[in-house]
Amino acid sequence: MLVQGMRGSQSQMDSPSAQLALIVASQNFLQPGGKMVAAAKATVPTIMDQASAMQLSQCAKNLAMALAKLRTATQKAQEACGPLDIDSALGLVQSLERDLQEAKAAACDSKLKPLPGETMEKCTQDLGNSTKAVSSAIAHLLGEVAQGNENYTGTGLRAGAGRGEGAVLVATDLSTPPGIAAREVAQALCSLGQAARGVAASTPDLQVRNAMLECTGCIMDKANNLIEEAWKAVAKPGDPESQQHLAQVAKAVSQALSRCVNCLPGQRDMDAAICMVGEASKRLLVDAVS
């Protein structure tokens, strides 16, 4: 993801969504990179060959320094790219939709494989965490819309933002970096898409694989609608119809998230077990009455 983000940013230097994708990929790399450093340092004392141990120790130090520089660069990039508005969030989500389409095509050809380090257990845990992160980010976005915070939702910079519409600059107060809430949603969706792809690639169950990719694609589509509706709602502060429509779209995203989680093998088995218990309880009641 990090290499892909770098290539995308280099080939599309004027693309806000490519810049945002690189920032997200960099953030997502920091935690596993830190774990790799810790694992390497813990392994050094167990290596008998002194030269190999020294080499591993030095590599761990170099990686730790590189991660520190990456963290600093990412923070500076976020500050410098503050003006990235709602278009960049929409562009990233649409890019995630395309990635899922490619994953579905690869799955149909039996070419979808787990990435290095991906396991069913890890991806399942990541999916649960990212689902919560998406829900939290959406709740944050809705809260800012309700308060009419244009800077935070990223709607104050452009008029006409959306799929295929021309963007027209309008005057606004940029004292607060715009697009933060929309960007949070897009970042959470990026982690969700990566986890869902990992689950699909790691499971041998064809039904689970197809359902996971299909449900995740639905989430991206609904979330795209949500970001657009949030922009429209802030453009009409206090409009009951806009607020109601936004709430309906948010509910659709929530339902799509639930369907995605329910695709997990363990969750499906649990639901089936609960249904079996329910049916057994009904039969016991019937037998008791008769």
Rank of each mutant, 00 (worst) to 15 (best):
R71L: 00
A250I: 05
A39N: 14
L226K: 05
M220T: 10
S281V: 10
S136A: 10
I274S: 04
S290H: 11
L174C: 07
V185E: 03
I227C: 08
C123S: 09
E229A: 12
A288M: 14
G82C: 03
Q244D: 09
E165V: 11
E279A: 10
D271M: 09
Q243M: 13
D205I: 13
C260Y: 02
L100N: 06
V234S: 07
P240L: 01
L30H: 00
V145Y: 09
K282A: 15
S254M: 02
Q94Y: 07
A161W: 13
K236F: 08
D109P: 01
K76L: 09
A38L: 04
N210T: 10
A167S: 09
C108S: 11
D287A: 14
A107V: 00
M276W: 13
K41L: 11
L141Y: 06
Q50E: 15
Q147C: 10
R158E: 13
D109I: 07
K76E: 05
G198K: 02
L174R: 10
M212F: 05
C59E: 12
D85Y: 10
A137I: 01
N62W: 02
E165K: 15
L20V: 04
L56V: 00
G154E: 06
M65W: 09
P114Q: 05
L67Q: 00
D126W: 06
A230T: 07
D109V: 09
N151E: 11
N28R: 07
R7Y: 03
I47P: 05
N28L: 00
T172R: 09
Q27A: 04
S258H: 11
A235V: 06
D49I: 10
P114C: 00
D14A: 15
A223W: 07
M54Q: 15
G162M: 11
S17M: 03
D173K: 08
E184Q: 15
A233F: 01
R268Q: 15
S57I: 02
Q248E: 14
G278D: 09
L90D: 03
D87S: 08
Q267H: 15
L285Q: 13
M120W: 05
C81N: 12
L284N: 12
Q243I: 14
M36Y: 07
L285Y: 08
L92Q: 04
V261H: 03
P177W: 06
V168R: 05
A182L: 06
A66D: 11
I180F: 06
Q244N: 13
E121H: 02
K41V: 14
V3E: 08
L112H: 05
T155E: 13
C275V: 11
G166H: 14
T153H: 09
E241Y: 13
V199S: 05
M276C: 07
N129F: 08
K104D: 01
A18M: 13
M1P: 11
V249T: 07
P265W: 13
A40C: 01
M65S: 15
A200N: 06
A77N: 04
E279V: 09
S136I: 07
A107E: 04
L2Y: 07
V170Y: 14
S15T: 05
D14Y: 12
V286Q: 15
E118N: 02
E102R: 12
L206T: 15
D221V: 10
K41I: 02
L100F: 04
G8E: 15
P178Y: 06
S95G: 10
A235K: 15
R98P: 04
A211C: 08
A201D: 05
